[in-house]
Simulated scan of single mutants.
Amino acid sequence: MTAYTVRDAKIEDAQRILEIYAYYVENTAITFEYDVPSKEEFKQRMRKTMQKYPYLVIEKEGRVYGYAYAGPFKERAAYDWACELSIYVDHAAKKCGLGKQLYAALTECLKQMGITNLYACIGYPQTEDEYLDKNSEQFHAHLGFQTVGTFHRCGYKFNRWYDMIWMEKMIGEHQSQQLPVAYRTAQKNRI
């Protein structure tokens, strides 16, 4: 039986990654985006991320089943050691450990870069419904993230208001003389 493998995403993966993401845009409040982006717009998003941060996919026998990437928490220089993470797994392949495997690989990449803080911005239901449950919060908590903030009724989708929570996980040491982040600029050659 062939195992799943994690690798750096390539722009050629954009169509499949977009297919995975489209399900969440059209059928859930996991993302607060209303419209599925075009393939070209999605490629641009990928290129921008890949300029500095890891963008990973998990695949089996050449088929991508999920992806995860990091990006800046905020644009100011003092936030360089903090990243916001995003992860999406094919909706038909959930609860198979793919997300955990992706996040483990992503976390290791970020540790090697010198990142110290990870953040996840998560849509959160006041009452679970057909568009949003608490699975993402539970998944992140299982991986060691802690809720550090709640924004009440800040997202409106499917004629409903949803909360948004921020979760945080520390993965590095905070020094008085912190080394600069080693961004993944080498990926630029593959974009």
Score class of each variant (00 low, 15 high):
1 M>K: 09
2 T>M: 04
3 A>P: 03
8 D>L: 05
8 D>P: 04
14 A>V: 05
14 A>H: 12
15 Q>L: 04
22 A>H: 06
23 Y>F: 08
26 E>G: 02
26 E>L: 09
26 E>H: 05
28 T>I: 04
29 A>M: 08
31 T>G: 11
31 T>N: 12
32 F>Y: 15
34 Y>I: 09
34 Y>G: 08
36 V>T: 14
37 P>G: 06
38 S>A: 06
38 S>T: 09
40 E>R: 06
41 E>H: 09
41 E>I: 12
41 E>D: 09
42 F>Y: 10
42 F>S: 12
42 F>M: 10
43 K>V: 13
43 K>S: 10
44 Q>Y: 05
44 Q>S: 15
46 M>V: 09
47 R>D: 00
55 Y>A: 08
61 E>L: 07
62 G>S: 10
65 Y>F: 11
67 Y>R: 02
68 A>P: 01
69 Y>R: 00
71 G>W: 02
72 P>D: 11
73 F>A: 12
73 F>V: 01
73 F>G: 13
73 F>H: 11
75 E>F: 12
79 Y>C: 06
79 Y>P: 10
82 A>H: 07
87 I>S: 12
94 K>Q: 15
95 K>M: 08
96 C>F: 08
96 C>G: 08
98 L>K: 13
101 Q>H: 07
102 L>M: 03
103 Y>Q: 06
108 E>H: 05
109 C>V: 02
111 K>M: 01
111 K>C: 03
113 M>N: 01
114 G>V: 00
114 G>Y: 02
116 T>I: 04
116 T>C: 09
118 L>T: 10
119 Y>W: 06
119 Y>N: 07
121 C>D: 11
124 Y>K: 09
129 D>H: 06
130 E>I: 15
130 E>N: 13
135 N>I: 04
139 F>A: 08
139 F>R: 05
140 H>D: 13
142 H>I: 00
143 L>M: 10
144 G>Y: 01
146 Q>L: 08
147 T>I: 07
148 V>G: 10
151 F>P: 12
153 R>I: 05
154 C>D: 11
154 C>N: 07
156 Y>L: 07
157 K>S: 14
158 F>T: 07
158 F>Y: 14
158 F>V: 11
159 N>S: 15
162 Y>V: 14
162 Y>S: 15
163 D>S: 13
163 D>Y: 15
163 D>Q: 03
165 I>P: 15
170 M>T: 12
172 G>W: 07
173 E>Q: 02
174 H>K: 03
175 Q>G: 00
176 S>P: 00
177 Q>F: 04
178 Q>V: 00
179 L>T: 03
179 L>W: 00
182 A>M: 11
182 A>R: 14
184 R>D: 03
187 Q>A: 12
188 K>E: 05
